[in-house]
Every structure is written in structure tokens, then in C-alpha cells.
Nucleic acid binder design. Structure first.
Lengths: 233, 233
DNA sequence: CATATTAGTGTCCTTTATACAATCAATTTT
DNA sequence: AAAATTGATTGTATAAAGGACACTAATATG
């Protein structure tokens, strides 16, 4: 029987890089947008890519994801962070093997975020999920975005994550628009409100939003925690 | 502005181990069972743990998962393999930082598998998911199993993965028992059959299974591919 | 031939999903 | 001030799906 492999035997012969990629979604101008950065370095210099970076020794994967995000958006706290998938066989970096743990990140005040250039990114910009630019790393990053979007759709169906994409106070129309942007289809207003109000999801606050037309009742989340429902929203 | 980190700057100072853990589920004696191994080495020597091992340079994460599984079960092909989660901040190994990518694996002929001792495992054994032994690595491995089970329940609801836990030909009662084992609750026979037969899921073959009682119609999967349904099974 | 064992089948009721349009409260225009 | 505009708010009827529930059928065994 062969003897067990020691740490050195396992690691000495090959290079392993650990990266965290973050798919950042925001709801801007009634559209679902995703944050991309223009790469400063090879590979894929000059092309748009999903923000991310290498994990440091002393930080967890989540911490690395949040730090990278902070560096690129100035955003210091997360409305919602979820691990998406780990990509391990992609030979996308000529310098060695890269294990990339991808996260989904939702922000609730995308308009207020000022996008910074960072160590690795020359520029950061929001893109409509339906009109993405050509991405670095070929089909790989595009696939990650599609997968992230798909996951987001699922999550919207049976949880309250949608509230992570809105400010503290919002109208039911605002909420419906977020759903419409993520599902990428129109929803019937009466049926939507019926469902939302039937579950313990939001509650009215003593305030209205006055823009054009009839003032709209403002609501807030009943909980700031992630909540999973059995039925479908 | 700081300059970009080179590969060496990122990696030279810390050790990174990449592991694949595999939660193997099988349907045995009408129960949902999970495969555990008794550890041969520290940490946690002598305790039961989720099988797994280190990823080699030349193999993908999936390949590593399948290889480890093969070494421990003799199983050479997978009925179903799905990435579960990546654990990255667990300081469970004193030798350095371990990034562990966990997979769910379903086997369709657990009775026929002969369990081998391997490099890292002294012994491998099936355990009822409802009466697990004390595990190595404290609460961590237990949590992984719970999470894997939860994921499996979800997947059963909207896909045909259940068929990956049965032989090629099976009766509707067999299928129902798999669902009951995974959901850990009784299902009404008539409602179950109504649902199963209402979707394009299985088709009868020209053969019956004769054991005790009335002979049962045998069925086969309409497709061997993973299939996602919109409604709930 | 009686009994044991497992397979197979249908109806009613409740819940949920979907389609669909008029009225209300404010602002803006004329 | 009347009319037009903008967006908010509300209910009903029909269809689809889910859940509860009990008897008959086909084989083997004693």
C-alpha cells in the first residue's frame, strides 16, 4: 500500500493561485446592471472583465471578495453576498493554475457608489445585463455572468433577496420593477401585490413617496435577514 | 498607486492546499446512506470523515473528485456529480490553509460497490443519514453533510436526479421509496404516481418485477441527462 | 382455497396561479 | 377652475395544481 502524501509532496511541484471573482448586481434606472472592470494587466488587458483578485493569506474567501469589491467600488458593506461556484480547471491564466471562487454580490444603492480605478482595474462601469460588452477570458466570463443571473432568478423566486437591491424604504412598484428587471419580463401588477402582501415580506411605513401622479405608500422589509419561502414569488 | 501584485508576491509567502471532498449518497435498504471513511492519519485519525483528498496538478476538480471516489469505492463512473460548496476559511488542517471544494455524488448501485481501504482511509462504510457517527473535524463535516442533504432535497423537487440513485430498470414503488428516503417522510402513493406520470420523466419497459405480491411494472428513465422541471415533484 | 403481500387506480376539495379593467389621488396643463 | 396626465390602488372569475383519502388486482404461499 502506498504511503500517504505529505503536504510538501502535494504542493511542491505546482503553482496554485486562489482568486475571488465577484459578480456585482445593481438595480439602476429600472434595469438589472452588472459591474465590470477594464483590465489593466495581462491577460486580457484593456478588455472588460468580472472584478476580482487574489485571496491573501490572512483573509477568508468572503473577506477577499468584500475587500476586492471595496477596492473597486468604495463600497464598504455588503447588502448580500453569496458563493456562486468554484472554477478550477480553467487554464485562463498563463502564469499558473488559478482556482477562482465566484461570488454574487447585491448592492442596494448603486447610484451612490463612486467607482474607483484600482490596482488591477483601470476603470469600473455598470452594464445592462442584456447588453454586455465583449469580455476578457472568452466565453468563460460570459458563462459566469449567465450562471449568476440564473441563480439570481431562482433566488428571487423563493427568498427576500430582492429587498437587498432596494433602499430601506421603497414602494411596491419599485419592488415590482426589480422583479421585472431580474426576470426580464412584465408582471401583472395586481397579482404581484397580492402575492407580496400575502406573505410576511414587507410592511408599510408611515410615509408616502410623492413623485408624479398619486402618492405611493412606502414599505420596508420585515427583516433584514435572508428569508426562504416555500412558495414562489 | 500601488503596482500590481505578481504571481510570486501573491503565493510565495503562504501555503495553499486544494482538496476535493465528496459526499457520496446511495440508496440502500430503502434508506438514504452516505459513505464515510475512517481516517488513517492526523488530523482526526481514527474518526469517520467525508472522503476526499488533494487535487493533483494535472487534473480538474471534478477529475480529482472522481479519482478519490474511485480509490475509495472502486467505482469508475459517476451517476451524478455536482459541486456543492467551497470551504475556504476553515483552519481545520494544522499543516496549512486548505481550500476544500465539496461535491455531491450519487451512485446507482451501492450494493455492488466493494469498499476499499485507500491511501488516506483505513476503512469505508455506508451510514444512514439519520444516524451518523461522531465525525472528525468537529461540526464542520457534519454541517457539510446537512447542507448536502438539503441540496439533494431541493434538487429532487425540480429535477430527475432521483433516477441517478436507481438501477436502469425500476418500479414506481422503488422510485417513491427513494423520494421518501431523501425527503424523510411518507408520500401518498396515488398522488406520487399521478405527478410522476404527468411529466416526461419515466417510461414503462416491456418487463415486470416479480417479488412478493402482485408483479410490478418496470420503468426506465426517458433521458439519462439531468432534467430540470418548472413544477415540483 | 384462504391468506398474505405488494401493485395499481379516481374523486373531491382546497389552495394557488392567472387573466383581466376600473377608480383614486395627486400634479400639470390649458 | 376644469381637464388632462401620471402613476397607485383594488377584486373577481377561471384554471391549474396539491392534498386527502380506500378499495380492487395479481401473484405467492400454506
Amino acid at each position: 500500500m502506498p504511503k500517504a502524501k505529505s503536504f510538501n509532496e502535494v504542493t511542491k511541484d505546482w503553482r496554485l493561485l486562489l482568486a475571488a471573482d465577484i459578480v456585482v448586481f445593481g438595480f439602476i434606472e429600472n434595469k438589472l446592471k452588472v459591474l465590470l472592470v477594464r483590465r489593466k494587466f495581462e491577460p486580457g488587458v484593456g478588455a472588460w472583465a468580472i472584478p476580482g483578485g487574489f485571496v491573501r493569506e490572512t483573509e477568508s474567501l468572503e473577506q477577499a471578495a468584500l475587500r476586492e469589491l471595496h477596492e473597486e467600488t468604495g463600497l464598504s458593506q455588503s447588502a448580500y453576498l453569496e458563493q456562486l461556484y468554484t472554477f478550477g480547471d480553467v487554464k485562463r491564466d498563463p502564469r499558473g493554475r488559478v482556482i477562482s471562487v465566484a461570488y454574487i454580490h447585491l448592492v442596494n444603492n448603486p447610484e451612490k457608489i463612486k467607482l474607483n480605478a484600482s490596482d488591477d482595474a483601470a476603470e469600473a462601469k455598470w452594464f445592462d445585463i442584456n447588453s454586455l460588452p465583449t469580455l476578457a477570458f472568452g466565453k468563460s466570463h460570459r458563462d459566469i455572468l449567465e450562471y449568476a443571473w440564473q441563480r439570481l432568478k431562482w433566488k428571487f423566486e423563493y427568498s427576500n433577496v430582492a429587498l437587498s437591491m432596494l433602499p430601506d424604504k421603497f414602494t411596491l412598484s419599485d419592488l415590482q420593477k426589480v422583479y421585472e428587471a431580474v426576470y426580464h419580463k412584465k408582471i401583472d401588477k395586481r397579482n404581484f401585490r397580492k402575492k407580496i402582501l400575502a406573505i410576511d415580506f414587507v410592511e408599510p411605513v408611515d410615509q408616502v413617496k410623492q413623485e408624479m401622479g398619486r402618492p405611493a405608500q412606502l414599505y420596508k422589509a420585515t427583516t433584514t435577514k435572508l428569508k426562504i419561502y416555500n412558495h414562489v414569488i
